[in-house]
């Protein structure tokens, strides 16, 4: 499965995938200190989205998206209006 080149595209696709079936989707973060890179994968076992980076500025973005997805997972409302604002 391809790696996304731009973060914006990845973030949008990841959120969309999550909202199609929240129970199926998992978010995987993989961090390699020795190579200094971080990879985020969002998948529902049929579609797999990946983004890889070695830039510190991207880590903040990944953390933000991760936090947002976590909040969505624990909120009772499966679809939230705040998704589009960011």
């Amino acid at each position: 499965m391809p790696f996304y080149q731009t973060w914006e595209e990845f973030a949008r696709a990841a959120e969309k995938l999550y909202l199609t079936d929240p129970m199926k989707v998992r978010v995987v973060l993989k961090y390699r200190h020795c190579d200094g890179n971080l990879c985020i994968k969002v998948t529902d076992n049929a579609v797999c989205l990946q983004y890889k980076t070695d830039q510190a500025q991207d880590v903040k973005k990944i953390e933000k998206l991760h936090g947002k997805l976590m909040r969505l997972m624990v909120s009772k409302e499966t679809h939230s209006g705040s998704m589009e604002t960011d």
């Binding site: 989707v25 978010v27 995987v28 961090y31 200190h33 991760h66 997972m73």
Partner: peptide
């Protein structure tokens, strides 16, 4: 994992 290896964190909704 400082010298070798990687950490994997998985996040999933749980019912």
């Amino acid at each position: 994992c400082r010298t070798s290896g990687s950490v994997v964190i998985t996040l999933k909704k749980y019912d």
